[in-house]
Design a protein around this nucleic acid. Sequence first.
DNA 1: TCCACGGGCATTTTT
DNA 2: TGCCCGTGGA
Length: 706
Amino acid sequence: MHLLSQLNPQQRRACEITEGPVLVLAGAGSGKTRTLTYRIAYLIKELGVAPEAILAFTFTNKAAQEMRDRVEALVGAAVRSMWLGTFHAVAARILRQEIAVMGYGPRFGIYDAEDARNLVREILREMGLDDKKWPPAQLLSHISRAKNAFLTPDDWSDASFFGRRVQEVYARYQERLRALNALDFDDLIFLTVQLFDRFPEVLARYHRRFQYVLVDEYQDTNLAQYRLIRQLAAGHRNLCVVGDDDQSIYGWRGADVRNILEFQREFPDATVIRLEENYRSTGNILAAANAVVRNNRERLGKELWTRKEPGERISVYEAPDENAEAWQAAQIVGLAVQQGIKPSECAILYRTNAQSRAFEMALSRVGLGYRLVGGKRFYERKEVRDLVAYLKVVYNPLDDLALLRIINFPRRGLGEVALERLAAYQRERGIALYQTLGEAEAVAGLSPAGQRAAQELCELFGHWRAVAAEGDLAQLVRTVAEESGLLPLYQREGTSEAEDRLENLGELISEARRFQIEQGTADLGDFLSWVALVSEWDQTDQRSDGVWLMTVHSAKGLEFPLVVLAGLEEGIFPHARAFDEPSGLEEERRLFYVAVTRACRRLVLMHAKTRIVQGRAQSNPPSRFLTEIPEELLEPLDFVRPREGAKVERGATCFTLGETVTHPRFGRGTVVATRGEGEDTEVTIAFPGGGVRSFLAKYAQLIKEA
DNA sequence: TCCACGGGCATTTTT
DNA sequence: TGCCCGTGGA
């Protein structure tokens, strides 16, 4: 029993009750991941269960990786054969094996949000609808909701004008996906559940294989995921789910807290274990979190406690505007770093990604590095998507959408006219666009040059397919990047923008190599699944030490000694979009609870009197969540002086020639010219090595040093 | 066919 | 503010 000796009694119970259904209600910081990790280790090491017989679901790839590492540390490399991943990744893996009976080819593509949007846009064009009046993203969210409720287009019952349109888009969308041999994120789960429903013998095979099923972040599962869990656990019923109803923050994505209640109805014999001792935060931080979340009605009821000291009180800072807020946050972190804390032990959290910019500027100004989670992601870069599109066609020639993206990029003389001819030919025969390339000679009205271009492209793809068969993924990606003309195109250009793109393409090649080594497979389909399903987390730069900048959603599951939570105003956090229904507000409150419980020792809460939102100034009262914290836990924050103690004037509009000022992005420089006055002052600054630039003073946020 | 410009619009959270 | 798209000019 050595293995479990480091756990508290409840945690230990959660590990030892391996047979039958178990529901672990684990509060924030109560050692949830630790418990799950030990449970797996216990199964393997103490009970001799084969790792292949264990299936574990996590919510993010990052969590999966972390859990794998931690289990490996306990039991060794044997865990590699355990199935552990996100619902989407596991479903994709099952479908690669089994999808044929569902009428798709095994080499299906996976469409991410942008692919799906493009497809919907194309459908709208076909239907003659304006994508301004029918925003693709909104249509897709309806479609997604339908899929999560297991409604096919035929099951659609909303007969309103709007509803019928959505239904038609949905129907066409599914039709097109099938023709493209592609699945969107929801399809991965939806189809797996359907597969198991229709083919019990297939499900039985997985029952035999997976003796133990574990689910992390259970409160964030949606109905479809819940059904999948239920199916997989139906055989042996050795199911352990771990969750916290107070941390359910994905309702907008269909997650349903009621799955926790449902679990107890479905498995009345389930053992319920509560983990309520918090090991992370000081008493004051915990008291604040408890006090706020207590205002929610829809909860199971749970009260975290700690043996720790109350610790410091929680600081509250009211900033004049969002730039001052960011500036102050940077100062606080800077001071803490001076006192010996590592930058990576500090996090600045906010509600929406759009808030990050001010912090980025403020931190660079103070000379602190940062790591930004979210925002523009690697796989969303144009050049990366282009190269991936080539790979998608190599893998799945039915993917017209991917082919269309790159058919004339880099330019190869297949312009609008040629495409129209190819499309006409394609429509006539009902074949994939790719096939028309090979039959270019037969395409009526296609110019000889167009024919040649099409043929050449077709041969290239044939060649790449042969390279793919050789089984060296990185080599394949490099070859495609080279021979498609993407790499040469940017090499020729020589601008700094082209440099960036080259670097990104190179990065994708490196990713392929890394994937091949770490995942032990060179299969293009596996790689493309991975590309489609990796969260941004996996893409953040792990090398540099820096302050963390991220949304509260991204921060779930993490902890930091120092947390600055910013933007606590009505309309921002809670977000204005959540005001409509009480459940929306409760979710915001849970989100706030998640944010507060990230902090170990020190928590700073900030709000701004005015803030520019969507280019317009807003004044919002402080967030209601601030007022829900008992006053004795709070203390107003004294303005933290800048580090050099210099007198500083922000947002100045009056300058003297030759004066030294600091620009948030470009750093220090010398004023060489001014024009206009007051609000309209335009100031020209020379930066050492950075050139000469002009700014409108009211926007530039220049800082004067006296 | 390409680029420059300008107007209009935007921001919830992510697999 | 900044990004994206459409327009218009070269």
